[in-house]
Design a protein around this nucleic acid. Structure first.
Length: 508
DNA sequence: TTAGGGTTAG
């Protein structure tokens, strides 16, 4: 009876089993089949080799996948595409593009699937130059009317912040589906064109297009900027109607939308109702509290996150540091900052350093902030120097201010803030000659300060304002209300900071 | 045996 155990596997059986290997706990099966293929002599067959490469990637072992690919004596378009797409999905976009180039030098031609994967690699790297080159290849090979390619192209252009190009592809496409629509929604939302995203979403709704969870998550993303609660609630109704609330992305989108709008009662309700909460759900709550000045609530939520055993992410710490900065809890903020790498193994990024510098600086610990910058393991960027200079301006510290502006101008010679903040420091100390010198220097360098602007939408009409703006037809009554508000604030104990307001920088 | 999309900070 044992004799029947020793039968030979054919290629079809091996590839069928490999196609079922799609999680790390099945890696041993892929390895086993690799050995069987080896002893059976199948490892030289392209089909089994390709399936092994895909199997290794799906089981999370890009190293073995790559090794198998490298050792294949013969490769076809499937082998190349499998390794190129596998590398993208494992976040090795640069390596994926390198292989695409290597493929171009081989005797195998790319197909639409290869182009699609390489474009995804460009999206991941924000590599628009390479993306455009692949776009040209796509046009040359005549596969440009493939919807997958079009979606990849739109996604590449939008991730590279070129919505004009993404729109050109979208408008020239003969058809669309839920994926290409989602790509455009996300593109608009992430490129500061929130109104366009909403417009597209409404068009889709009125055209009767089936809305799926991905589209809803994408559109909820615009509510960071658009804080229209009534619109948000309409989308929440849609979620309930279409039973999409069980999707974690959708639930997180709702939590985010409500917390950004300051509706914490609603956000907590959705948060508590969500069965599959993840770190993003917690981050959305923490960030919402931090944004609305509820630092203590943000810290409390973080405590609960720890108690539930949910691991924080780098974004959790950005929100927490932001919260500490505005509450003025330096000690707690530094504790959290240290725990990032020591307890959670997360290396601070530039943004974290900028947050800490901002936190220390706001509280007047300028020397401490300076020391922190000097000890940074990475080269401080504009963000960091600007945070330090901003704090110096706030506290009128000339010495550290000079140091910060000097470094800021080295990394960003056209940074208007470096000149303006420094001029403010000189003004606050009555150093008029030095102030004049820096303004002159700014003009000589051709640096222009962008005028600050605010806007509000009233009954579908957007009203925008700049400083000392009298152009609005209702300017008189607007200023009357402003005066009333300021009087009310002063009554409540607000002391206006008049150090800089008297000194017009003459920058128009 | 190979392909396209979603939530969080700033």
């Amino acid at each position: 009876m044992w004799g029947s155990m020793f039968f030979r596997f054919d290629q079809a059986t091996l590839t069928t089993v490999l196609s079922a290997c799609d999680s790390p706990d099945r890696l041993y099966v892929v390895k086993m089949i690799h050995s069987i293929a080896f002893v059976s002599g199948f490892e030289e067959g392209i089909t089994v080799g390709n399936a092994l490469v895909t199997g290794y990637f799906k089981c999370g072992s890009s190293g073995f996948a790559r090794q198998t690919f490298d050792e294949m004596p013969k490769r076809n378009v499937v082998s190349w595409t499998a390794v190129i797409s596998g590398l993208v999905q494992s976040q090795f976009c640069e390596e994926s593009l390198r292989l695409f180039v290597a493929m171009r030098h081989s005797d195998v031609d790319a197909n639409s699937l290869t182009y699609s994967s390489s474009l995804t690699a460009c999206s991941g790297m924000q590599a628009i130059v390479e993306g455009r080159q692949i776009h040209a290849l796509v046009l040359k090979s005549g596969v440009d009317s493939d919807l997958c390619i079009e979606s990849s192209l739109m996604d590449m252009y939008s991730k590279c912040n070129s919505m004009e190009d993404a729109c050109l592809v979208f408008e020239s496409a003969e058809e669309f589906d839920e994926v290409s629509m989602t790509v455009m929604l996300v593109g608009f939302a992430q490129n500061g064109l929130e109104e366009k995203a909403l417009e597209l979403f409404v068009t889709m709704m009125t055209a009767g297009i089936e809305i799926d969870a991905n589209m809803v998550s994408a559109i909820l993303g615009v509510f960071g900027v658009i804080t229209s609660l009534s619109l948000g609630k309409q989308i929440h109704s849609l979620v309930i109607k279409k039973c999409l609330g069980f999707n974690t992305f959708v639930a997180n989108g709702l939590i985010n939308m409500y917390s950004k709008c300051g509706e914490f009662g609603e956000s907590i309700k959705v948060f508590n109702q969500t069965n599959y909460r993840n770190s993003v759900s917690w981050n959305c709550m923490i960030a919402g509290f931090a944004r609305h000045g509820h630092g203590l609530e943000a810290l409390q939520f973080y405590e609960n996150m720890n108690l539930e055993g949910v691991e924080p992410t780098d974004i959790t710490f950005l929100s927490l540091l932001h919260a500490c900065s505005h509450v003025g809890s330096i000690k707690k903020g530094m504790e959290l900052f240290d725990s990032m790498s020591e307890v959670h193994g997360i290396s601070p990024r530039m943004e974290h350093y900028a947050c800490v510098v901002d936190m220390l600086g706001r509280a007047g610990h300028l020397e401490e902030a300076k020391c922190l910058i000097e000890g940074m393991p990475i080269e401080p960027s504009v963000l960091v120097w600007q945070a330090l200079l901003g704090a110096c301006s706030m506290h009128g510290n000339l010495e550290v201010g000079r140091y910060a502006s000097d470094h800021l101008l080295r990394v960003a010679p056209e940074c208007s803030a470096a000149y303006v903040l420094m001029a403010n420091i000189y003004s606050s100390q009555g150093r008029w000659k030095e102030r004049a010198r820096i303004i002159k220097r700014m003009k000589e360098m051709g640096v222009k300060k962008e005028t600050g602007m605010s806007w509000i939408e009233v009954e579908k009409e957007v009203h925008s304002f700049v400083v000392e703006d009298l152009s609005h037809p209702q300017a008189d009554s607007i200023y009357e209300v402003l005066d009333e508000l300021i009087a009310f604030m002063i009554e409540e104990g607000y002391v206006p900071d008049k150090r800089f307001v008297l000194y017009d920088l003459g920058l128009g």
